[in-house]
Amino acid sequence: MESLSTAPRDERFPHTNQTRNCWVRYVEWKLCEEKHGEEESECKKFGRWARALCPVDWIERWDEQRANGTFPGPSGESS
């Protein structure tokens, strides 16, 4: 197990509502994986942060949507 660490405080999301923080971390993570592959350490870091912020159910649903091509956010193919 690594030393205690979690998604850091993000100046872009200073409010109580962290929905967009989770969303942006997830999108960053997946775009990074599409560009650099899953083994890239930067992508793993984004993945850790996204998992720290987003509920497991959300990530599962978004992964499913990405597999089906119905994910409402940006993805590698469209950008």
Binding site: R20, W23, P72, G73
Partner: peptide, 9 residues
């Protein structure tokens, strides 16, 4: 003003 994740925010 704060669109949900289902809308792509």
């Amino acid at each position: 003003l704060s669109p949900g994740v289902e809308l792509g925010m």
